[in-house]
Structures are given as C-alpha cells and as structure tokens.
C-alpha cells in the first residue's frame, strides 16, 4: 500500500508541474511569425548585365534596408544569353554562406567551404553542398518583358535547403 504521505508528496509535485504548463504557449512571444508574400516586383534590366555577367538583387523588396539586407532575400541573376537569365538564391545550401558566380571558372562558388554549383540549373557539382539531400540552389522565378525588365514573381525551393 502506498502511504498517505507519498500520495500527498506526489500530488504536490504533479500540481507544481501542472502549474508550469500554461507558460509554454508564451514561447510564441519569442518566435514571431514572418509575413511571407512574394509579389511581382521589378528587380533589374537584362541590358544592364553583360553576357555571363551577374547582378545581385533583393527580393521581396520592402524599402526598409533593415529587412532588405537580410541574406535570405539576396539572389543572383546570371545572364546566360541574349534574352535569357538564370536566377538563384545566394544562400548556399550547405551552411548558408553567400555564393556568387565566378565567370573564369563558369561556376557558382561558395567562399566558406568551397561548394560549387553549375549555372545552368544550380545543381551542386562539388564541395559539401554536393553531399546535401537536396542538391539544387533555390530558384528565383523571373519574367522578362519586351523592354528587358526583369520581374521576380516567386521562389522555387526552400532558401538554405535547396529544392
């Protein structure tokens, strides 16, 4: 038989733990929800980029530099043809350093741990990113109008994780 003292002691502990439970939802205070919307925005003009040149763009742009400078809003656009561009997230899918396109090597490279992606489809060909479960850089979906203006319309894949 469990004696009365033990029962009361366990009840004391149980009620103490129960009293803590309402504090857990307060964790929401620590983790605000980010508003994610991807409007159609002009990010540049194709005629400003030389063939096999790159342009760094911010998307989605809010006008507030404190938000716009966020690495997760940084993309690079490579002009691959007369009227053709490739646009990827600059965040390496390995450890989130910022990649850029190296014209002489014809590769997108990460300066931290040396991951390499090919410009055609953002596929990681070498380095630690090639060992991640998703090996493609997220794509910035773009449209080019008759004036050569480049519009970003959305993101394919999850930034920092690939697609």
């Amino acid at each position: 038989m469990v004696d009365r003292r033990t029962v009361l002691k366990s009840l004391f502990v149980a009620s103490g733990i129960a009293a803590l439970a309402p504090f857990f939802p307060l964790g929401k205070f620590l983790t605000p929800e980010a508003q994610a919307s991807y409007p159609r925005q002009k990010v540049g003009n194709i005629n400003d980029i030389p063939i096999l040149g790159q342009l760094f763009v911010t998307y989605p742009k809010t006008g507030d530099p404190a938000k716009d400078n966020d690495p997760f809003r940084q993309f690079l656009i490579i002009r691959t043809g007369e009227n053709e561009v490739k646009a990827y997230s600059r965040v390496c899918i390995h450890l989130w350093c910022l990649v850029d396109y190296q014209k002489d090597k014809d590769l997108i490279e990460c300066p931290c741990h040396g991951s390499q992606y090919r410009k055609e489809d953002g596929y990681a060909v070498a380095g630690p990113a090639a060992k991640q479960p998703n090996r493609y850089l997220p794509i910035l979906k773009v449209e080019i109008d008759s004036n050569g203006d480049i519009y970003a319309i959305g993101i394919e894949g999850e930034i920092g994780y690939g697609r």
Binding site: L107, E109, C112, G114, S115
Partner: peptide, 8 residues
Amino acid sequence: KSYVERLA
C-alpha cells in the same frame, strides 16, 4: 584554384 580545392 577553385574555392573547393583551396578549402577542402
């Protein structure tokens, strides 16, 4: 050299 050759 590429970054990966220099860093790996």
